[in-house]
Design a binder for these strands. Structure first.
Length: 497
RNA sequence: GCCCCUGUCGUCUAGAGGCCUAGGACGCCACCCUUUCAAGGUGGAGAUCACGGGUUCGAAUCCCGUCGGGGGUACCA
């Protein structure tokens, strides 16, 4: 059993390509097969090595690196190579020559202008576009003479008449009349470069692909491939056409309407595990009510029977929920590793004033992990710890039920207790009873304040924000000196406001 | 236009003729927990299974039609 993913490096790694790759890998793992990565860079005008690297690195990051073919570092392994179409030109011309020799293909001398005119004429008569096949009636000897004389000619594959049946693993039997295929198919341009429908078949045949699992957008073109496989005299692979991933308006997911670049999701702080989990459940289900699944679990459970037939809308909100689940599920030391680059980047671009140490992050993790759905969200939640001063907004500083005078009184009343109770580098008191909290509650009660209001005033004074990790842990993390100076600054701010 | 695929809560889905008074999850609302925000817990609203005909004692499940949505239709991939 051999499957493949064949990305085209004409743009950044697309999330839809990632899902197709995942389904292929899952299918291979489940059935003990080989998962192959092939780069389809026949379109030299649009393909770039930067895009290729982006795709290869993306696959590796997701855990979808090739068993055979092009690996994450760009190297190739396997005995069926080369695995880049740009390196297979010789082979395509060789196969094309065989088809020509058997008269299964013929040179076409039509110019672009002639083909345009033909197409427009048919359009005017409300007929579907279709090549007339007129060059197909030129005697092979005459055609050969003209080619030898240097006349420019593309090579067309003869599409035989009749119905083509696709026995699709997810859609069942699909029958398409060859009449609807648009006439004889160009497989080699006049300059000798091969076209997609041809290269894909030659490669799948040469590489011994047994199962072609790809997006539904290829279903209508599959008869062309089947006819080509038959002309080549090689056994047909099984086909499985996956439902498309859709924009919220239910059109095919596109860059214009959705975020499609994997790298953008990565940069936002989506976890590899979450993306895999989410993508697996887009168009496939376990048949059970399980939702949070690891790659290992997916590999053990995947099947084509539960693949959906209708397109699936990419629901970003659901992805974020799954990401939050995985953030909480990851071991803390692993989570620290994942968070590291986000803090480093924030320090580099000035969102925080200094680099956070591993020890500091380790102390933070327990109080932020249930508060973030994206790794990047950790920064605004904890930036107050890594900055020299906070800007106090008086409107936030004064709790709803309080006025400025009460707030000043509250901060002043709390100050000596905090000066006494918070030093530097103290351990957190996560679940435990906190004596400091008890004291402050006492102060609030004596003054007739709601403790929550006092806490809110302190929260904003210490962090500049109204939504933060737990107050007492936040204050301990900050340290006594910084805390007191922020309280003083907050009081000063209120006096001048 | 033509060809093909498809149609269960807003979204992802369970469902293979009686287990369906259609289940779960996200999101939404309420409550609980609670120093904020989350997380977590409980409950709720939300689908005449696109519609219309059949078949059957019985249909979300089978058949036909209609309508809606999507994809394809290149000397792009």
């Amino acid at each position: 059993m051999r499957v493949r993913i064949a990305p085209s490096p004409t743009g950044p790694f697309h999330i839809g390509t990632a899902r197709t790759a995942l389904f292929n890998l899952l299918y291979a793992r489940r059935h003990g097969g080989t998962y192959i990565v092939r780069v389809e860079d026949t379109d030299v005008a649009r393909s770039t090595t930067d895009f290729e690297r982006d795709i290869l690195e993306g696959l590796r990051w997701l855990g979808l690196e090739a068993d055979e073919g092009v690996r994450g570092d760009g190297g190739e392994i396997g005995a069926h190579g080369p695995y880049r179409q740009s390196a297979r030109g010789e082979r395509y011309r060789e196969v094309a020559a065989e088809l020509l020799a058997k008269d299964l293909a013929y040179p076409c001398f039509c110019t672009a202008a002639e083909l345009d005119a033909e197409r427009m004429a048919r359009e005017a008569r409300k007929l579907p576009p279709r090549y007339s096949g007129r060059c197909g009636t030129i005697a092979p000897a005459d055609a050969a003479t003209r080619v030898a004389a240097g006349e420019s000619a593309a090579l067309r594959f003869r599409i035989p008449a009749g119905a083509v049946v696709i026995d699709d693993l997810v859609r069942g039997r699909v029958e398409i009349d060859a009449e609807a295929l648009g006439g004889d198919l160009v497989i080699l341009r006049a300059d000798g470069s091969p076209l997609y429908h041809f290269t894909v078949v030659v490669d799948d045949a040469d590489m011994g692909i047994t199962h072609v699992i790809r997006g539904e957008d290829h279903l209508s073109n599959t008869p062309k491939h089947i006819l080509l496989f038959q002309a080549l005299g090689v056994p047909l692979p099984r086909f499985a056409h996956l439902p498309l991933i859709l924009n919220p308006d239910r059109t095919k997911m596109s860059k214009r309407k959705s975020q499609t670049a994997l790298a953008d999701y990565q940069a936002e702080g989506f976890l590899q595990e979450a993306l895999i989990n989410f993508l697996a459940l887009l168009g496939w289900s376990t048949g059970s009510e399980d939702e949070i699944l690891s790659m290992d679990e997916l590999q053990g459970r995947f099947d084509l029977e539960h693949v959906q037939k209708a397109g699936a809308v990419f629901d970003r909100v659901r992805l974020e929920w799954i990401n939050g689940q995985w953030i909480r599920k990851l071991p803390v030391d692993e989570l620290l590793l994942r968070l590291r680059p986000f803090y480093d980047a924030a320090a580099a671009d000035g969102r925080i004033a200094r680099v956070a140490s591993d020890a500091e992050l380790a102390k933070l993790l327990p109080i932020i992990r249930e508060r973030i759905q994206l790794l990047s969200a950790a920064i605004p939640l904890t930036d107050f710890l890594f900055t020299d001063r906070v800007e106090h907004d008086p409107a936030l500083l004064v709790p709803k039920r309080w006025d400025a005078a009460t707030t000043i009184a509250g901060l002043e009343a709390a100050r000596p207790i905090l000066a006494d109770g918070i030093g530097e580098g103290e351990p957190l008191l996560l679940e435990a009873d906190d004596p400091l909290e008890a004291k402050l509650r006492g102060v609030a009660e004596a003054a007739g304040w709601k403790a929550g209001d006092l806490f809110m005033a302190l929260r904003v004074a210490a962090t500049g924000r109204t939504a933060t990790p737990p107050l007492f842990d936040s204050m301990r993390l900050l340290g006594g000196a910084a805390l007191l100076s922020r309280i003083d600054a907050a009081i000063a701010r209120l006096r001048t406001a």
